[in-house]
Amino acid sequence: MSTVKKRSINHGDVNRFRFWFQIGAFVILVYGGYWALDISTSLPTFSCVFPSSRGGTCYLYPLQHQVNMTWKQFASPRVIGVLTAFGTFVFLFLLFNKAWCGFACPIGTVQDWITRLRLRMGIRPGVYTEATFNRLKVLKYVLLVLLILLPLGISNSLLGLPKFSHDVATSFCMLCPGRTILPIFTGDFSQLTIDFSSKTMTVLTGLGMAVLGTTLVGAFYKKRFFCLFCPMSALHYVFSKGALLGLKKDGAKCTRCGNCYRVCDMGIREIADDLERRNIVQDDCMMCFKCVAACPEEGCLKVTVPGLTVYQSTEEGFFARSASRLNHER
């Protein structure tokens, strides 16, 4: 890449790029079906299965379906389907790493829009204390384990428990705000109901509406409120180390000024204070690269694909962004 091109990229405002990219991704994932798009049914992002016009499907939905098998079936050829879907998921994830969250996830995008609304209204955001943050971030792993155990418990008796009702087959989807929010964008409001057809469904859809209400308010005050609980994010992190797209930190260049930490929507402190690790992607990271844009140290933070630095922090870029921003506000 020529140095001129490189400079112009490093001077770029990643936030604006991301804003427009997210809109594009949202249109593709939520309305892509109108153009007969069906990218994959194992997408590593919340491209919800409920809007009929979706352009691809969130992997958690087939995952819950597929693990709903008896132990015997796990030893049968049926497992090939499970493995294929899983392999597709891992492959797609490894291409873009957690940038799926920051750049593609429709629920992340909706939350970012809500944040923009808050900014317009001039209301300050909520910030978790470190202790709260650390307590809450464990929840997504709990959700991930439940998401697999519940469907397993439909086909099998777990620990001598009676088999679960079929209504918990896609229990996480019932709780996920993707199910309630995204169909609205296609004019389908039918997910905003309580389903009284069985006790389980009543509870699940009730919880779903509670989660929706809390998420809407939560996302208004806290940036990316739901993401801290997202089991997809937990599942991502298992494979994040091997991904092609990387976020690298050079600890020797870090002054620990904390700029990156303060602009981080997720509130990840390691980005500023961890000087040892080179691969700085954390489980809550959504790879929005705001930290890279906020870092004034030459090459301290880098977005990489193997053999190439795509975007990196530069002193010049930092001041260029800062100036254009300050001018814009004038």
């Binding site: 905003l192 309580i194 009284f196 009730g206 929706l212 209400g213 809390t214 308010v217 939560g218």
Partner: peptide, 21 residues
């Protein structure tokens, strides 16, 4: 779906949680 799904309950539960939070 109208026989077992309720917008009234759904929306009021959602709204309650919005107000409470």
């Amino acid at each position: 779906r109208r026989e077992y799904q309720s917008y009234a309950y759904g929306l009021s539960l959602g709204a309650t949680f919005m107000v409470v939070s």
